[in-house]
Design a protein around this nucleic acid. Structure first.
Lengths: 333, 333
DNA sequence: GCAACAACTGAAAACGCTTTCATATCAAAG
DNA sequence: CTTTGATATGAAAGCGTTTTCAGTTGTTGC
C-alpha cells in the first residue's frame, strides 16, 4: 500500500476538463467559468490534490524559494536578520533555504553554487567579507543577490545596512565627551570591510573631530566571541584605555565581564559601548549601551527588496540605509 | 543577451554521447569507460554545465532538501539545534528549508503542507506541542518526520531528546539538598507536553523523594521571555520561594535579574537553576547553573536519524535519549 | 439571423533530468 | 574463431506542471 500521489491529470480526468483548466483554477487564473471552477475545486478537494512544487518549478522556472547565506544561525545579530527575512518571505509566499557559511570563503562559494543549482529565485547574503570570487559568483548568478547587514567595498550589489561610519563616530564621540581620551576600538578581523572600511573610519573621524591623535595601540583585532572579549582585559588596561567601542555584542559582553571580573568598575572606571543592540545587551549587568540597529527590519527590507528584484520591478534605490540610534544603558556614564 | 542555460543535452551533443551517459558521469555511476568519462568531464567544464536540481528532483523524486520547522530562529535553544541539523545535513548533501512557526498550530500545519508540496525528502520538527492535527499531517506525510528537542505524548514519531523527567528531578533535588523547602517551578505554558508531562513530573518526583508536599502555589506558568521572568519577582517572593527551577534560559535570566534588581541576592537568598545551558548562562552575572543538554548534538543526531529514515535504512531505536548533565555555576550555592 | 468579439477550454509541447531496457562492444574462455 | 558474460552505451519514456496557440462557445448589436 504505497502512498499514491494524485496528479493534475487525475483531477482533470475526474472533473472532465483538461489539465490546462485545472492548472488555471489552481493558479487563480480568472479565465475560467465559475461553474467549471467550482467543479474542479470540488474534485481537488475530494481527491485531496496537492500540486507538486517541483514539477511546477521545472515548468515555470520559478521555485518560490530564496537562498539565505548566514555566517551562523546561532549568532544573535544574524539570526535576528534571518527572522525578518523569513517573515517577509513567508508574506510573499517564498520559502527560505538557510545555510551556515562560517564566513568561510570556500564554503560560501560552494553553498552559493548549490543554491543556484536548486534554482532559487533570489539570494540573500550575510557575511562580513565579499571576496572577489564571491563577487564573481554573484555576477554570474541569474538570481538577484542582496546583501543584508553586510557591506561590499565595490558597492555594486543591492544591500541593506545602516550608516556604520556615522553610527560609530557618534558612539565614540559620546565616549570622548564623557572625558575619555583613550578610547579603544575592539573589533573582529580588519580584513572585513565593515571593520576597516566603515567602523574604523567612524572611529577615526570621531577622534579627529575631537582633536585626538589616532593611536593604533588602541585598536584591538580579535574574534567575535565571548571568550575573546573576556581575555582582553589585561591588554586593554595596559594600553591605558578607559573606554571601548566594541563591534559585536557577544564580544562586548566578554569585554565587560572580563573587566568586571578583574575588578575594573563599569562604567565608573571604564565605559563600553557595543554595536548590535541584540537582546543580549539587556541581559548582562550592567546593561550595555549600544548603537541601535533595526535588526529585524534590515532583514525584512532586504527580503522586500529582493522580491522586487525577482519580480523585475523598478527599484528606486539599490543601496538602502536604515536609521540607527544610540541607546544609552548602564555601561556608559 | 539573456543568460543561456546549458543543459545535459548540450553536453551530450558536444561530447558526442547520449544524455544517459552524461547523467551517469554526473552522478558518479561507475559504468562509464574512463576515456568517455574524461571526455564528458572536459565538455562539462568547458561549457560550465551545472545540473538543474529541480529537473533532477522531478525525475528522481528526490530533492535532497529537508524541511525544518523551528519556533523561532532567534531563540538560542532552538538555533543551537538548528546549527547541528544544518551541519549534518550539509555533510550528507542535504539542504535545509527553514521556517519559523512561532509555535502557532495553524502556521505549523500550513508550513508543513508547503514543505510537503516542495517534496522535501524529510522533515525535522521542533516545537513544544504536537497537536492532533499536526500528528495527522505527520502521518499522511510520505516524508519521514523526526522531532528534535521536542516531545510528543503519543510517542509515535521518531525523536531525539534528553530524559527531561530525570534531569529536572536531579536539578530540583539539588536545590532541595541545599536546604530549600520551597522551590518554585517556573515554565512556559502547561499545555505543552514537555512542561506538564515531563518537567513537572520530574519536579514532583524530587519533591516526593524529599518528602515535601506539592504545592501548586509554587508553580508559575508564564511566557518564555526575558520580560516575563523579570516581572516575576514579587510573585516569587510572595509565595515564599527561596529557589526556582526555570524551564528556559532567557526566562531564567529575567527571573534572576528581576530578583537582583529587587535586592534579592542570588544565590545567597535565592537560588535558580535553568534548563538549556545556552551561551546565555555564561553571560549573565551570576552565571547560571543549568541542566546541560547537548544542544548541537540533539540537532545533529536528529538529522542523522532522518538521513537513515530517508534512506529506508534499518534503525535500531526511533526514540533516542541523549545524556544530560548538571552544570553548577554561580546561581546556586 | 449573422457578424464580430469576448470569454473559455483543450491539445500538446516544453521544462531538464533519471532510469529502464535493449543493444553494442569487448575480453576471456573454449 | 565462436561463445559468453560482463561492461558500456543509447533511445526513449517518463516525472507533474505550465503555457502557447488554436479552437469552441456564448453575447451583443444590427
Amino acid at each position: 500500500m504505497e502512498k499514491q500521489t494524485v496528479t493534475i491529470y487525475d483531477v482533470a480526468r475526474e472533473a472532465a476538463v483538461s489539465m490546462a483548466t485545472v492548472s488555471r483554477v489552481v493558479n487563480g487564473n480568472p479565465n475560467v467559468k465559475p461553474a467549471t471552477r467550482k467543479k474542479v475545486l470540488e474534485v481537488i478537494d475530494r481527491l485531496d490534490y496537492r500540486p507538486n512544487a517541483v514539477a511546477r518549478g521545472l515548468a515555470s522556472k520559478k521555485t518560490t524559494t530564496v537562498g539565505v547565506i548566514i555566517p551562523d544561525v546561532t549568532n544573535a545579530y544574524f539570526s535576528s536578520l534571518a527572522r525578518g527575512i523569513d517573515d517577509i518571505a513567508m508574506m510573499y509566499k517564498y520559502n527560505i533555504i538557510l545555510t551556515n557559511s562560517d564566513e568561510n570563503g570556500g564554503k560560501e562559494v560552494q553553498v552559493l553554487n548549490t543554491l543556484m543549482a536548486k534554482q532559487v529565485d533570489g539570494i540573500i547574503f550575510m557575511g562580513n567579507q565579499v571576496t572577489d570570487e564571491l563577487r564573481e559568483e554573484f555576477r554570474r548568478s541569474k538570481a538577484p543577490v542582496v546583501l543584508a547587514g553586510s557591506v561590499d567595498e565595490e558597492k555594486v550589489q543591492p544591500s541593506v545596512n545602516i550608516d556604520y561610519v556615522a553610527a560609530v563616530a557618534e558612539a565614540v564621540k559620546n565616549l570622548i565627551d564623557h572625558g575619555n581620551q583613550k578610547v579603544a576600538f575592539v573589533s573582529g578581523s580588519m580584513d572585513q570591510a565593515i571593520n576597516h572600511d566603515y567602523r574604523l573610519k567612524g572611529y577615526k573621524k570621531a577622534l579627529k573631530d575631537a582633536g585626538i591623535a589616532y593611536d593604533d595601540k588602541l585598536v584591538f583585532e580579535t574574534d567575535y566571541t565571548y571568550k575573546a572579549g573576556q581575555s582582553l582585559e589585561p591588554a586593554l588596561s595596559a594600553a591605558g584605555a578607559t573606554a571601548a567601542f566594541v563591534g559585536d555584542d557577544e564580544l562586548a559582553a566578554g569585554v565587560m565581564n572580563g573587566l568586571t571580573d578583574a575588578g575594573v568598575k563599569v562604567p565608573e572606571e571604564f565605559e563600553v559601548i557595543t554595536s548590535n543592540d541584540t537582546k543580549l545587551t539587556e541581559l548582562v549587568r550592567p546593561k550595555m549601551s549600544s548603537i541601535t540597529q533595526p535588526l529585524y527590519d534590515i532583514g525584512a527590507v532586504a527580503m522586500r527588496l529582493l522580491t522586487k528584484l525577482m519580480n523585475s520591478e523598478a527599484v528606486e534605490e539599490n543601496t538602502v540605509i536604515l536609521p540607527y540610534g544610540l541607546m544609552k544603558r548602564s555601561s556608559t556614564k
